[in-house]
Design a protein around this nucleic acid. Sequence first.
DNA 1: CTATAAACCGACCGACGGTCGGTCTGCAAT
DNA 2: ATTGCAGACCGACCGTCGGTCGGTTTATAG
Lengths: 242, 242
Amino acid sequence: MATSTSTLKRTRRNLPAAERREALIDCAQSLFFSKGYEATTIADIIARAEVSKGGFYHHFSAKEDLLEAVVARMTAAIIEQSRDVLANPGLDALERLNRFLHRTSDWKVDNARRLASVSRALLAQENTLLFQRILAAVTQTIQPLLLGIVKEGVEEGVFDVADPNLAAEVLVSLSHARREVIHDAIVMAEAGDVASGVRRIETRMKAETATIERLLGVASGSLVLVPKGAVRKMLAALAAAR
Amino acid sequence: MATSTSTLKRTRRNLPAAERREALIDCAQSLFFSKGYEATTIADIIARAEVSKGGFYHHFSAKEDLLEAVVARMTAAIIEQSRDVLANPGLDALERLNRFLHRTSDWKVDNARRLASVSRALLAQENTLLFQRILAAVTQTIQPLLLGIVKEGVEEGVFDVADPNLAAEVLVSLSHARREVIHDAIVMAEAGDVASGVRRIETRMKAETATIERLLGVASGSLVLVPKGAVRKMLAALAAAR
DNA sequence: CTATAAACCGACCGACGGTCGGTCTGCAAT
DNA sequence: ATTGCAGACCGACCGTCGGTCGGTTTATAG
């Protein structure tokens, strides 16, 4: 007679673990973004990924584990591309700092659209947890890097800083606080008002530049937080694609 | 025959709503501190408070509501005592800033023991959420206050700052980052090593003072983040009480 | 063809946040 | 004193959700 296996899903496909994992992370990320981590159910995720409960728990030990995987994947790119900052031995600390900052903003220009949607999702009320995790992960990579640059700058006599640790801390926290401004500008650009968005960001950047120059004790004008025209380019891309 | 009320709790006492609420918040806070918000169950709370499920939900609409109440009560004191900073009209901005900072550190000296236990609890891994909520609440009060002072200072010509908003932001984030250092020092003091703790905090404070002086464009030495001897007094109180 | 490991299934479980119909208490008006 | 009422309080019950487990299916190596 018919066993309990009679109505088995015929769509079952064994995937290599890495692929399944990736697929699950995809679904989870998209759901986390739209509903938030807490409000997203394992049932939601496995429904979208077309995997059973057991299948899910074969790849992840807990919901928390999945969260970590999402954060890890999101931060991997940033962490990876930051790692080779130390690879320019010929440059002094100030130049290195500028390069480092530019690479970040170059990425933002290239990935404007993705940045916009991620930014929207993460600043939402229900996503504090996810956002916090990402900030923590990024900080953990970026801060030591910046600390290294600052320390080197002090040794070279390029920077004048009492406590490199504190300086690195401030640099990181400034970059985090910046996101809010960037998000505002994105909203403006997506509404078609690129000019306002550009103004918003550049005002902020100007103030930040002055602040950091003072903080590091370098001459006014020697620091370039973001390349000329980069802001406009990024926001224009958004306005064009709306 | 015996109705369903036969085994009613004889210890039931109707309290005024405010008192019950307070009692529940007490229990919740203590449990949140020791186990974290997520790990604390409504069942835990009502068991300790000796109140039924229904009784609890008569006073709070949800667990989240209780969290808000805990945060509100914890931040109420800080918010309250900060409010009258604007009440010294005769002083210039620099003086006002110093007063404001001193009041904060005075409070820390007076409440060293409580500060120690709260600090321990909030920096624990499982309490990120609670900590974040408190930071947000405090920031929301403190930052506008500092912004006011900075703006006034700029008008008076006492401060030289491009963007008062940014300056206020940095001031707040510095004060938040400070907690970690303070916590380290508390641990040292409680282990009996007051000297190391004092050194740790004062090194940090010195660097912060220099940073803020640069940030605000005031002369070196004009800012006094923390009154002389305050750090030692606070940590000594902890060492004595261990 | 068979053995073995890994991918996958889905019924089931216990815990937890939250609800609901009702009871009990204190107090004010009669 | 009695009654009526509001609101403090009770606890059985519910739906949901994260997580488990015994077992089945698929892929692969020998």
